[in-house]
Write a protein that binds this DNA or RNA. Structure first.
Lengths: 329, 329
DNA sequence: ATGAAAGCGCTAACAA
DNA sequence: TTGTTAGCGCTTTCAT
């Protein structure tokens, strides 16, 4: 085993509490004592045992981060930013993948509860009620969902959807299909609400297809249904689905964007790489990760329910074009 | 605060050691006592404090997982598989991103050492010497690199590179450019060795361009140099670079695969989505993640240096075609 | 099968 | 400024 606080104390000729202070409250130790202790500690390769520390302080300096699916390119930038931000503040991040399963999600929160100082729930699939219950067990911050109680970090999907509709109507589209996401996804509901409102106010015909898993495969599978509606444009729950829709559409012989335009949401890395490049509502993934960590760590006034909404931005690429037969005026 | 072992003991009318046994050594407790204890614990919402447990047992039931860049699509499938596998065995995974920085990497290992039962070093950038040193501090398993000492999980890049060259020579290519990866990457060296050998034995002209950061941008930037060589095919360090190379090539007006063929390594998700679809050497990312966890957890005989090499497979898509002027015979 | 007692390595009052 | 003294919540001998 490695050396303990006692070894350092003995070697430095001080009491263990002095060693403890040298590390966790340096200002309470005289400069020379501290230097000596630190030097001895260094020499012995001593590092405070986090478990012992956690046991007594109640703080682990770990953060939990739950995502629905690590393989969804939406999450890595968020995780990366959160982990980086946490690290700057002396925290590590325990990442867990819930596989889109609300039950697993809840189990994981409980399992992590005593092991972390707080948990970031990203796009949770569990019920609001469950979130309320779990909030008693461990500080929570929710990303991508509106819940009463815990601090919430949102992305302005409604504005993004409106921008998408403005873009599409400017291109002459009058019939749009919305390919929704999974049941239990707050974002999917939000997108649907915004799309419905935007369609109505623009006098656009909106067909809603869903729920669908948030995957490329689901998007591809939805393409046939999209074509049947005769719509000239599609808004998808996210880029993965949008990419799948394009794939299915092209497969079915429908040119994108010639016959039909496709808009995604998220702006994940692949959206820049595919061709045609995907027009999409870019969401601030990294900013959300950082904000969530901030909220979790800096929550001075607990009672104050923070609700942070970050802006989104429409990125126009090549998957959208004027509606067929309606050249841009 | 939540209830402790003492609350449960009191409520169940037994000694705390009995409660402890009911959880961690059920066979040492009579069936009825155990049932009663468990029921009371359930009712009180008691869950053993992992820090207290770790302090005394020395096992945290946490695993560390270090990757060079979380945003590189190569890693998420590996992390997902590793986390899933770990979870099945009652372990959680602490994920950290080293930003391709050997110094950060080392710091992180040290910081996590006492906090986890072992660390997965994925594509580490630090020196072998550093790995040897850190191995004294915490059990290590290394993925994607040959090191003496710790168990190692490899992917058979050499076989993959050979397959790629066979594919290219069969298509009539006689001049190939290798766009290498970053300095310090074992994979990059391995690929280079294999490519050199394969080129020699096939009588193919090989130009090596590098080192390069493992990014799309670097690939795009390398395209000009690639064209200058007059080669008709490119093998890239990984798919990200390959996708960048295609982008740069197309940008420069060189048709892919008409004028020049491109082969990547990894088979990340975007490679299936782009067009032309990327021909690439698929690496077993999920399998590697699972194998690494297995090695870390099941290492009965420590002394035995395990070295596991997982197979790779060439996936032929649309980014490769017969060399110009040399139709396939 | 259960209880008693001794810590795991550390921090946090409280004294000195 | 430093030492003393209790534990944090749990596991693990050792008794019984």
């Amino acid at each position: 085993m490695s050396s303990t606080i006692r070894d350092v104390a003995a070697a430095a000729g001080v009491h263990i509490s002095t060693v403890s202070r040298a590390f966790s409250a340096p200002h309470l130790v005289s400069r020379e004592t501290r230097d000596r202790v630190l030097e001895v500690a260094e020499r012995l390769g001593y590092r405070p045992n986090p478990a012992a520390r956690a046991l007594i302080t109640g703080r682990t300096h770990n953060l939990g981060l739950l995502v629905a699916d690590l393989a969804n390119p939406f999450f890595p930038p968020l995780i990366k930013a959160a982990a980086g931000c946490a690290r700057e503040r002396g925290y590590h991040v325990v990442v867990a993948d819930t596989d889109e399963d609300p039950v697993v999600e809840e189990e994981l929160v409980l399992a992590l509860a005593r092991q972390v100082d707080g948990i970031l729930l990203c796009s949770p699939r569990m019920t609001n009620e469950a979130i309320g219950r779990l909030r008693e067990e461990v500080p929570l911050v929710v990303v991508n969902r509106v819940v009463a109680g815990p601090p919430v970090v949102l992305m302005d999907l409604a504005a993004g959807v409106r921008a998408a509709f403005e873009h599409l109507t400017a291109l002459g589209h009058r019939a749009v299909v919305l390919v929704t996401g999974p049941r239990g996804s707050w974002a999917s509901g939000e997108i649907r609400r915004a799309a419905t409102a935007a369609a109505r106010s623009a006098g656009v015909d909106l067909t809603v297809l869903g729920p669908n898993p948030p995957t490329q495969e689901a998007g591809a599978a939805a393409a046939a249904g999209v074509l049947r509606t005769g719509a000239t444009a599609v808004l998808a729950y996210n880029d993965l689905v949008a990419i799948g829709v394009i794939e299915g559409l092209v497969e079915a012989g429908a040119d994108v964007p010639g016959r039909i335009s496709v808009v995604g949401i998220d702006d994940i890395a692949p959206s820049r790489m595919i061709s045609p490049g995907l027009t999409t509502v870019a969401t601030p993934k990294a900013a959300a990760g950082r904000a969530a960590v901030d909220l979790l760590l800096e929550r001075g006034g607990d009672g104050v329910t923070a609700r942070l909404t970050l802006g989104t931005e429409l990125v126009v690429r090549e998957s959208t074009a004027p509606a067929p037969g309606r050249p841009l005026t």
